[in-house]
Design a protein around this nucleic acid. Structure first.
Lengths: 176, 176
DNA sequence: GATGACATATGCAAATTTGTATACAAGTTT
DNA sequence: AAACTTGTATACAAATTTGCATATGTCATC
């Protein structure tokens, strides 16, 4: 199961919002770099949870915006899910590892070229994230959302470190 | 988009297999700890890609097993996707960061309890992964799949390191 | 006041994923 | 050998996600 529901419920804890405001808040938090919420899913998620009684429709804009608020059942469910997310070690989904899995399917030349290319991409991304740090508070984002971004940055650093030691190994035919 | 397609195509590179064999191979590679392939999706993915000409049905078992092989179009598509996975820095989806995002929604007591609980869970998981390292080669898994598991272990270590420095900060009211 | 460029805001069909039900073979216990 | 557990193997309905199509508002500029 994805994290869409917790995110939607969590965003609504402080008061009713309509779909687009939810989206903005998630963007502000940088959720797109550590969660997987396609913005199209927001509207489905909201209306589904309203059906289930976790949310209620505050203002049904016929043709316009629909404002959703969280119900007590919704709050309860949120705290239940939150507890799970804290306790359970769920798998971290890293698309790069799919690439690594098939590193033996390419010629050494192509592999090394791609490894260098990725090193550059990663360095740029990590640098950008470091600079972006703290820039969101001005727009009302809580201070601790930066903690998530720091962790993501460290995880990208793990990829960088791996590349750094793997490149010489590939050259020495120690890998794959 | 998820990584189901590359994984299925990649698993079939070496020769035709039926659905359950694909599943076993992915399990052997430890794919469930860094990818998100529900085993139910395998059958859909295979038959869909067969429709699209990326795979071909080698042996259509009416009522029994269906064996799929990769076509040239499938190989081409695989290498195209693989290039993308190497170059593009796609978001790492980490469910724990959802938990961190809402750390300000709990009492300090409960938060600290959950942080300790997670520290323990993580320590256990990391230990298990360290011990499991290398144990799969005996069953025909390529040596470099361990590289993925190492990276995942390091990423879990990032969570541990974060917790270690965050716990005192919470106690000092420096967080959230 | 027309034009264009953006930001705001939602909905939906098509594609995908999930969880579970099903079936049968093989082994093993009683 | 009947009654079980376990492993093998697939399919499917229901739920979810995705990418895109569709409006509408607004602000500047010519």
């Amino acid at each position: 199961m994805s994290s869409t529901r917790v995110l939607l419920l969590g965003v609504l804890l402080d008061g009713p919002l309509h779909g687009y405001e939810v989206r903005r808040k998630l963007e502000l938090w940088g959720a797109d770099s550590w969660a997987n919420v396609a913005y199209g899913s927001i509207y489905h998620g909201l209306s589904k949870m309203a059906d289930e009684g976790l949310l209620e429709i505050i203002e049904s804009g016929k043709g316009g915006k629909t404002v959703y608020g969280i119900t007590q059942a919704g709050r309860d469910h949120f705290y239940f899910l939150l507890g799970e997310y804290w306790c359970d070690v769920k798998p971290i989904v890293d698309p790069f590892q799919v690439a690594v899995t098939f590193m033996d399917r390419m010629s050494e030349g192509r592999l090394l070229a791609l490894m260098h290319e990725r090193t550059q991409q990663l360095t740029a991304t990590v640098g950008m994230m470091a600079r972006a740090r703290g820039g969101k508070q001005g727009f009302g984002a809580p201070r601790h959302v930066d903690e998530s971004l720091d962790m993501i940055r460290s995880m990208l650093q793990v990829q960088l470190d791996w590349l750094e030691q793997a490149i010489p190994r590939v050259k020495d035919n120690d890998l794959p």
